[in-house]
Design a protein around this nucleic acid. Sequence first.
DNA 1: CATGAATGAGGGTTCATTCAT
DNA 2: GATGAATGAACCCTCATTCAT
Lengths: 195, 195, 195, 195
Amino acid sequence: MRKAKQIFQGAVDVFAEKGFDRATMDEVAERSGVAKGTLYYHFGGKEDLIRFLMEEGVGQLTEHVEQARNQSADPVEQLRRAIEAQIVFFDQNREFCQLLLKGVWSTSDRQIQFREIMQKYFNQLQEIIDAGIAHKQLRAMPAEWAAVSLFGMVSIVSLRVILQGRPIDRKELTEFLFQQYLYGASLPEEKQGTC
Amino acid sequence: MRKAKQIFQGAVDVFAEKGFDRATMDEVAERSGVAKGTLYYHFGGKEDLIRFLMEEGVGQLTEHVEQARNQSADPVEQLRRAIEAQIVFFDQNREFCQLLLKGVWSTSDRQIQFREIMQKYFNQLQEIIDAGIAHKQLRAMPAEWAAVSLFGMVSIVSLRVILQGRPIDRKELTEFLFQQYLYGASLPEEKQGTC
Amino acid sequence: MRKAKQIFQGAVDVFAEKGFDRATMDEVAERSGVAKGTLYYHFGGKEDLIRFLMEEGVGQLTEHVEQARNQSADPVEQLRRAIEAQIVFFDQNREFCQLLLKGVWSTSDRQIQFREIMQKYFNQLQEIIDAGIAHKQLRAMPAEWAAVSLFGMVSIVSLRVILQGRPIDRKELTEFLFQQYLYGASLPEEKQGTC
Amino acid sequence: MRKAKQIFQGAVDVFAEKGFDRATMDEVAERSGVAKGTLYYHFGGKEDLIRFLMEEGVGQLTEHVEQARNQSADPVEQLRRAIEAQIVFFDQNREFCQLLLKGVWSTSDRQIQFREIMQKYFNQLQEIIDAGIAHKQLRAMPAEWAAVSLFGMVSIVSLRVILQGRPIDRKELTEFLFQQYLYGASLPEEKQGTC
DNA sequence: CATGAATGAGGGTTCATTCAT
DNA sequence: GATGAATGAACCCTCATTCAT
């Protein structure tokens, strides 16, 4: 089982750097420190390896966010923690972050399985949003769109920062995205009226 | 020049369907209705063709949004029109929409040139946002993040709908995203205080 | 079309020498004097190439025997000519002869298609035998077995001689096999009784 | 020694089904119910295993025919019994039958060793034929060709029947082949003259 | 004796690119 | 301008063999 772990790490690195199609199994093997045959001893092939990577990674992300979320019962607070947890996870797993977003937009053969894999994660966000709506803390809106747009916002900005190679100021980014998502871009004063 | 147009269309289709790496020049030629040699007569090669596609497409998108934006002087109204224009453009150019988002996440070799290509578009969004901040209609925030997160939200949700194969209700989607982006997910009542 | 001919020749040589499975496409290309890619430009792949070879070769053999046979109306004479024609053909196409017999015994995936290909040839032999039986020149017997056993006798002995690298004495071998097939191994005297 | 027996059986099955080259040591191990390493503990390698299989099998066949033959002193009767014994053996060892015939036509590397292995068997047939000629029961003919053509006839027809998956009617097939080999395809009446 | 994880040379196939026509 | 036959580097994968346990 030692080698399987090595392969996982090496594969994430290579796939993140080169993309799924341009990455070669040769390079995965080399970067993992195992022989090419070993890849095929542990995984069925390239596509199988990719699927495993995505499932494993999204599983970890989901669990990570789940834990963060469960530390509060308040939907809005859960939202903040979920955003923060996603940012932290992406920051800690920069390669996987790239991998994930590549997977999301990948070829339609893979799109289907990725969509299934991602669904677990989206469902979790939807639960939070639905709870927020039920508690009258969030306005009524299509929960699916709301979840997807949240994911889009958070990940696209996170990745942008990651790709610039800069360290992420997690607090600052969380705060920005939380504010943005919850209260939007308009001036608070304006919203709160001229009483 | 007739052939070049054919190639453009065929290439967009094929690349959108298969992704940049899985699409073959053979298939591009076939779908374009030209011989393979002709591709190389008009374009330097695969990467050159891809770059041309992206520049051309993003140019069209930018121009499309630019026009929509210029119909109003009010930054907030410009924002609404920009969002709507992007949605309309994506809806009218579904293949290119997929292409664009694939390009964004593509291999780091291409990422650099794509980032440059996209910059024109982001700049435009930033201008609007900066103007909004200057006019005290939007709250102060990092304009780059604001632009990127807007783009992320709009495109990720648009693509999601497109991929589901459903027709887009442009008005409804625009309204949702505009509201979401400007006022966020929280209840308006709460924001507007208890006057 | 020039290259296709080259490939045919090279492929027959290599497959005959190494067998279908041990022969490599690399070697076929090299021996044909074309690049490896060219093989795949002209043929779908290894299996396709093999199938083409067999069909083409058996077609030629069948036609060759057909012509020889048609020079006489007498079934027994046709039989003699068919045997001779097969021996001549094998002697002239020693590589293909080996190929053919390898194909016959090959893996069950290929066995099916080979059996179909061979059927054309067997049918021809059966026709001759059936005619002989109808004309009371041959004894009544299951025509399929008779055809197959004829083919087995002729080819197995031919190949044995070919593999020993000796030149075939076509007349002598034809005579032996014709006598053997028609009158068997027993003494003519014995058969013709002690009148 | 238990394992060696298991391997023998599994190997015969797999090699007969897939052919020597397409069969893998993995599958032999699996079908034998032993670990892959065990194969290499008992046999030197794949080629060694193949050679062992062939020698063992041909040895059994030779012995089987030897016994049948020895039950009569008459060369012609010996011939009949030899044919029958070969058919019975093939029928009882269908997998080996396929294996044997695959081996005969195999790659020239193996052809040499197979030819040596088969020689024992051919020698036996030649002995019978030579005795028949000496006793004036068979006509004078090259004993090698006579033996090889006998083998070819019997085995090619036997395998044909086996591959069709039909049960062999041993008596009927023996009779046909014996008649065919001894008296040929021509009408007996014609042969026995018009006394 | 027996095992099975690990290996890496080698095979079939793909595909961007070239060039003679 | 346009073509398509030809190319060969590079890829994914297989499988006989080894060796530490």
